[in-house]
Nucleic acid binder design. Structure first.
Length: 575
RNA sequence: GCUCCUGUAGUUCAAUGGAUAGAACUGCGGACUUCUAAGCCGUCAAUGUAGGUUCGAUUCCUACCAGGAGCACCA
């Protein structure tokens, strides 16, 4: 039942009472026993007209009841003046039919049709570890990309990788300090990556201990930029290639396919040129040998765009990046997903972009996610206090396999399912909360295969699939109509009352850029299905209602699959 | 010191200014043994403090307290 139709119904009733309201709100009551839609219109009007809300609600409901459409079974006044609408079994049977008919397209809409939207996320740095923070960015960015795509936009996924900068200089410096020899081509990719990580940790620690060597690091940094040293070039090229190859493996595992990669090495010269151009136009100014965007212009705080060595900083590169992205994909909107520790920088950056390219500044939206921190404190790749994505994925997968040990699987199948389940568990644990909040990451507590978890959703779906498979073997087909639970007035389950809401949940997730609305909703659906499954014998050849129950089961599977897709979580057929 | 973010059951998270603040984990107690028990049912348990706005505040405002992030040449 379209919300608009209900609103019209309320409006008509108000009109016949000589009342009017411009802002009628309908919401899903928190509690399913409070009906399917609820309106607070009597409370709002009661305040405005200084009337008792309860009696007003009774009058409005009286009018509505005079011409009740068949989709509504009853309208009630509740609480201190809420008007609750209960939809009819006929409505639910029709909505189940619609879900089955639209299937994998159920929930799609066209609100962003014709728009080109860029989403930048993950952004790991070559030469550094891919840690659980990147996992968080990737998971959130991927889910948001899919939600936007579901709304009809053309989505381009991009990844910006920091292949130049101090961290690279520190790694190369660290390589020189290491006693271990540089890995040859025969070494495995993980060995190479491990070596780079150790080199960075060593370089960074030594640097912190002895600032006197700072000049050395700066020299290497300069050489990386101007490619003047053959030895540095060789280490750099190899390390960069290994890192990128390694990242690609991870993206594939996680289910992300980027459309385009951007690199700091390419953004650097352009950023430098850009800042210099606007230095003449008095947007930037010199200060202590550096070029800064002053507090007076930003209204926030002064930030360095080109350091006193003449090298562009992150901020300058970012200005160029916006333009580079636009040249490749002339976007309507550019979303950048990063950790919230750079929130303040990003505000300054957008102000500066407002001067260098106002059009693009208006089209840029920053979404920040929280930090994944360890119970022991902040993660730092400098001190080696980090959890790499690889180790987390491996550990989680091991646990999934342990859980599966009594199940009957082929070898290859077992590996695949364990991977889907473990990645599902990790992604769910990230997506179940609001994106901006930090997660204190404790593998025992954050990652669960039970209850409120990714595998819970996957499991509910495999059960549904399994029932449908069995029904098919027995020659029974799902049928949402005619509605069989007795004269169109049968018992409506909580399951049906949740399923038709999916499109509106998708909508809300899109508007707020918050995938967690989906995880919450899907978990409710899975719980309702599990309860239904436990209380009802779905397949019963002697019972005509069985066909309807199968249709319902099939609809659950559609919703779970579409919802999990939007979360970026894969769906195993059995587990 | 300044700026920004966050404070909800023992723990991890929800709640579009509305109804009895929802889940999950943990604890305690059950059921079935028929379509996958990674499941189902019951139960204990929470809005940091003090004010304010409002018919109504977890939500908005102010102060305080606690935690986190940032505050010019890292990203």
């Amino acid at each position: 039942m379209a919300v608009e139709k209900l609103k019209t119904l309320i409006e008509d009733s108000l009109r016949s009472l000589n009342l009017e309201a411009d802002n009628i709100q309908l919401e899903y009551p928190d509690d399913l026993t409070h009906g399917d839609y609820s309106s607070n219109i009597a409370l709002v009007l009661g305040k405005k007209l200084k009337r008792e809300p309860l009696s007003l609600a009774v009058e409005i409901v009286g009018k509505i009841n005079e011409k009740l459409p068949p989709e509504i079974s009853k309208v009630e006044v509740a609480g201190m003046g809420f008007i609750n609408f209960y939809l009819s079994p006929k409505f639910f049977a029709e909505s189940v039919a619609e879900i089955l008919q639209k299937s994998e397209n159920f929930g799609r809409n066209e609100t962003l049709k014709g728009k080109l939207i860029l989403v930048e996320y993950t952004d790991p740095n070559p030469f550094k570890q891919f840690h659980i923070g990147h996992l968080m960015s990737n998971t959130i960015g991927e889910s948001i990309s899919r939600i936007i795509g579901f709304a009809g936009a053309e989505v381009k996924r991009v990844c910006y990788q920091g292949d130049v900068g101090r961290h690279v200089a520190l790694t190369i410096w660290g390589i020189r300090l290491m006693d271990k020899s540089f890995p040859g081509e025969a070494a495995t990719l993980s060995e190479k990556i491990k070596y780079l990580g150790e080199a960075y940790a060593l370089g960074a620690t030594r640097h912190k201990e002895a600032l006197a060597d700072d000049a050395e690091v700066k020299k290497i940094n300069q050489k990386i930029y101007d490619r003047s040293d053959a030895e540095v070039n060789d280490l750099y090229d190899k390390g960069r290639e290994w890192s990128l190859e390694y990242f690609e493996e991870i993206y594939q595992k996680l289910g992300t396919k980027f459309d385009q990669y951007f690199f700091e090495s390419a953004a650097a010269p352009r950023g430098q040129e850009l800042v210099n151009r606007f230095l003449d136009k008095k947007v930037f100014e010199e200060s202590d040998g550096a070029i800064v965007f002053p507090e007076s212009k930003s209204g926030l705080h002064t930030r360095v765009f080109i350091n006193s060595q003449g090298l562009p900083t992150y901020e300058a590169k970012e200005l160029a990046l916006a333009e580079m992205k636009y040249e490749v994909f002339p976007y309507d909107l550019s979303i950048v997903v990063t950790a919230n520790e750079i929130n303040e920088y990003f505000k300054v950056l957008l102000k500066a972009l407002g001067f260098t390219n106002p059009k693009l500044a208006d089209k840029t939206k920053h979404i920040s996610h929280g930090m994944l921190r360890l119970p022991s404190g902040k993660m730092s790749s400098r001190t080696g206090q980090i959890v790499t994505a690889e180790s987390l994925l491996e550990e989680t997968k091991k646990r999934a396999e342990e859980k599966m040990k009594d199940r009957d699987f082929l070898q290859e199948e077992r590996k695949n399912v364990a991977e889907m389940v473990s990645i599902g568990a990790i992604k769910y644990s990230i997506l179940k909360q609001k994106t901006g909040k930090d997660i204190i990451f404790d593998i025992e507590k954050s990652l669960s295969f039970e209850g409120d978890s990714g595998p819970y959703l996957q499991y509910a779906n495999t059960r549904a699939e399994s029932v449908l498979r069995k029904a098919k073997e027995e020659g029974m087909a799902p049928s949402p109509s005619p509605f069989l639970q007795g004269e169109g007035g049968g018992e409506v389950t909580n399951l049906e009352r949740l399923l038709y809401r999916f499109p509106s949940i998708v909508d809300r997730s899109l508007n707020e850029c918050e995938p967690h609305h989906l995880t919450t909703y899907l978990t409710e659906v899975a719980a309702a299905f599990n309860a239904f499954y436990a209380n009802t014998h779905i397949i019963d050849p002697k019972d005509d209602n069985s066909k309807y129950r199968l249709a319902l089961t099939s609809a659950v599977s559609v919703i779970l699959k579409n919802g999990l897709y939007l979360l970026g979580i894969q769906v195993p057929e059995k587990m």
